[in-house]
């Protein structure tokens, strides 16, 4: 008798999933509005902008020195991080994460959109930090682009870490590493300045900044798809 080879369980599962993937209707979800994304975040937003104003005040007091660019870079993602951690803390303290994760617009998707919008907003606001420190011309653009890359990548990595670990504790490593790195680099500020302003071409700064933003948008799109058709 000829032996009959039956497919293994995993193979059956894969085939089933492939059939379903093509057969299930793909309804495009409308994106939630700002009210839904930032709902109940007013106190956290106020505190974050308080921190931003404090940083801005600090920059205004700062005398222009070789260390200024690094200090600006150090401060760049801090408003984002303060909003990120306060936002999670508020949701966790109110015990709403599990409930929100069960809704059409699941918590992870909402937090991703929230951080994307907030990052873009603070990128603009942080231009004031650079202006406050007296940078202009190509130096202004270089620093703005480097700061934007630093901030957007911070946001992206913090969200990916949260997605992978399900906890924000791991993301706390990111600002810690960033602050330590900047403080260490302050000792070599002249070399870093030369690297930032002279060695790395302006176009590369801009490409990295735009690339970071594109990566963040792609990631948000992936989370959006996962929210809509997967979990």
């Amino acid at each position: 008798m000829m032996p009959i080879e039956y497919p293994v369980r995993e193979e059956i599962q894969r085939t089933k999933e492939a059939v379903l993937q093509t057969a299930l209707p793909r309804r495009r979800l409308s994106r939630p509005g700002l009210r839904t994304v930032f709902g109940r975040c007013a106190p956290v937003l106020l505190i974050s902008f308080g921190i931003y104003l404090f940083l801005l005040g600090f920059c205004l007091m700062l005398e222009r020195s070789p260390r200024s660019p690094l200090i600006v870079l150090l401060l760049y993602p801090l408003t984002y991080y303060s909003f990120y951690f306060l936002s999670f803390r508020m949701e966790r303290e109110n015990g709403v994460i599990e409930l929100k994760q069960s809704f059409k617009y699941a918590f992870h998707y909402l937090i991703c959109l929230r951080m994307l919008y907030f990052s873009v907003l603070t990128v603009y606001l942080n231009l004031l930090l650079i202006t406050a420190c007296g940078f202009d011309g190509n130096n202004f653009i270089s620093l703005a682009a480097a700061g934007t890359s630093a901030q957007i990548l911070s946001a992206l990595f913090s969200l990916i870490l949260y997605e992978k670990t399900g906890s924000i504790r791991c993301s706390a490593v990111l600002p810690a590493v960033w602050i330590i790195a900047c403080i260490v680099l302050l000792r070599y500020s002249e070399h870093v300045n030369r690297l930032l302003m002279e060695i790395i071409p302006l176009s590369l700064h801009i490409i990295v900044a735009v690339g970071s933003l594109a990566a963040f948008l792609l990631y948000t799109g992936k989370v959006e798809l996962k929210n809509a058709y997967d979990f």
């Binding site: 999933e17 379903l20 299930l24 015990g95 709403v96 069960s102 997967d230 979990f231």
Partner: peptide, 28 residues
Amino acid sequence: GAPVQKLGASYREIIGYLPQQFGYYKYN
């Protein structure tokens, strides 16, 4: 008949869920 993992948001739309620890914003 369709796996809920693949239905995503359209499945969550039809769920009403009360978790064991119901969270809320106390100033609302």
